[in-house]
Amino acid sequence: MIQVLPRWLEDLLTVLSYSDELIAGLSTTLSLYFTALIMGFFLGLGFAIGRQYGGIITSRISTAYIELIRGTPLLVQLFLFYFFPYSLSATLELLGLLPLPLDWSIQIIGPGGQVITILNHRILTCYLMLGLNSTAYQAEYLRGAIASVSAEQLLAAQSLGLSRAGGIRSIVLPQSLRRVIPSWSNEAAYLPKYTVVAYFIGVEDLFAAAHFIVARTFLTLTTYLLVALIYLVLVTVISRILDYVHDRTKIPGL
């Protein structure tokens, strides 16, 4: 006798039989996410400090960068960043020079003997562009938090003999990094979903895995619901972690 499963469960099992593709896609998405988040944080902190405390030139450059990135679509930035080296390479060739080597890749052999591409021109473009894009947004969250620490505290630090930079490091940053967490969690929650742009230049992220599975199985609804659920779980976990960190680092009495 044949056990008849409910239709939806049968569909789900079919989609889950592509677990290799899903896992590979998810790990690409996660590495894009964390790399961009961390790169965006450190560069963003630099731009935020530059905009808040820098001289007129540093502050203008920071502001221009932030406005340029925030004012244009991420996908357009990614395409420009992706195609520019190709146009440059073609121009070089026309001029009789050597073209840029753009078809390189770094691959490893996975546990099942399959070839896994760790890095190539496409993936590197995604890492850099997502990071550079996140930089602009994180810079603004950080600048807001830095500005919320009273300038008088920095004066007090300077009155003790600390340099301005020393005061920023030991007085302003410890407080602003605590304060930024609630608003910064916005960026941390947005970014996993922004990484889907990688699909448009052929990087095999979670979204690309979903497309692949749909093309094979035609199980559109089940596949996209499953992928949506994975993003939801990811973002929920990140939010919980940040709430916890925010709670643990609260300044008593404030």
């Binding site: 009273s150 008088e152 505290q153 004066l155 007090a156 630090a157 300077q158 009155s159 003790l160 003999g161 600390l162 340099s163 007085i171 410890p174 407080q175 605590r178 300044i251 404030l254």
Partner: peptide, 20 residues
């Protein structure tokens, strides 16, 4: 100036303690 300021104490109207 940093060295000089370490020899001059300053007490502020609004205290300006380091809140963290």
């Amino acid at each position: 100036l940093n060295m000089i300021r370490s020899k001059i104490g300053m007490v502020f109207q609004h205290f300006n303690l380091f809140l963290h």
